[in-house]
């Protein structure tokens, strides 16, 4: 089980190369980083885990993208949308996580979505970027949304993942700093530790024993 930052955006999207991000993440205490569109590998002891981010509003297009990338064995994350879209995404097989929960309308991720996420083992992303970079009302709104998410989490126990969405090495935060940030919206230390390790579970899910005749 390793502490993993669930999403970072290296050069050219950001100003730091993936190798530099890996060095800095390793120095901060991470064992892995999830990088969209990158090749899998290990650099200076830090695992680079590839992922695909699906940013579509149409569920048919999402299904097509999942089919396209599903066999490649990489992590698939889908941006959240309205209530119906989220429920449809969470019913899909092959999706590993749903992200950008703080950007959608307040009730778009409800108790039914939470139950579906739990049943299908789909992780819900907590994006720390707005907590660090936003100020005032917009940060309050994000904190409010995450408070609500934690209430659903305590009831349905769906998996959570934590990502810095760092575009620069200056946006990376250590697991200890992430624990402090998560305490702002009522996430306790055990839940934070578990969320930091969820990526390992998504990569190698626990499956029931099969009897081969």
């Amino acid at each position: 089980m390793m502490d993993t930052d669930a999403c970072i955006h290296p050069y050219p999207a950001g100003n730091s190369s993936v190798r530099r991000m890996a060095i800095e993440a390793g120095a901060l205490g991470f064992s892995g980083i999830v990088v969209p569109g990158e090749m899998p590998g290990v650099y200076q002891g830090v695992h680079i885990i590839p992922a695909v981010l699906i940013r579509e509003n149409d569920i048919r297009k999402v299904t097509g993208q999942i089919r396209k990338h599903g066999a490649s064995g990489i992590l698939i994350f889908v941006d959240a949308g309205d209530t119906g879209f989220n429920r449809a995404v969470l019913a899909q097989t092959g999706v590993h996580g749903i992200r950008s929960i703080h950007r959608i309308p307040k009730n778009a991720f409800d108790h039914i979505s939470a139950r579906l996420a739990h049943e299908n083992g789909i992780a819900v992303e907590i994006d720390l970027y707005p907590l660090i970079h936003e100020r005032g009302v917009s940060r309050q709104r994000v904190l409010n949304r995450y408070n609500d998410l934690m209430k659903l989490h305590s009831r349905f126990q769906f998996p959570l993942i934590l990502s810095s969405n760092a575009c620069s090495v200056l946006d990376l935060r250590s697991p200890e700093e992430i624990r402090l940030l998560c305490s702002l919206f009522g996430m306790n230390k055990d839940d934070t530790n578990q969320a930091l390790r969820t990526i390992s579970t998504l990569l190698s899910p626990l499956e029931s024993v099969m009897v081969v005749p």
């Binding site: 660090i132 970079h133 200056l170 946006d171 935060r173 700093e177 402090l180 940030l181």
Partner: peptide, 19 residues
């Protein structure tokens, strides 16, 4: 320490502080 985590710039310069 929590507040320091959210510090991203000093003046015009991008910065990060780690306790």
């Amino acid at each position: 320490r929590t507040a320091i985590v959210t510090l991203t710039s000093v003046g015009e310069r991008r910065i990060a502080l780690h306790a």
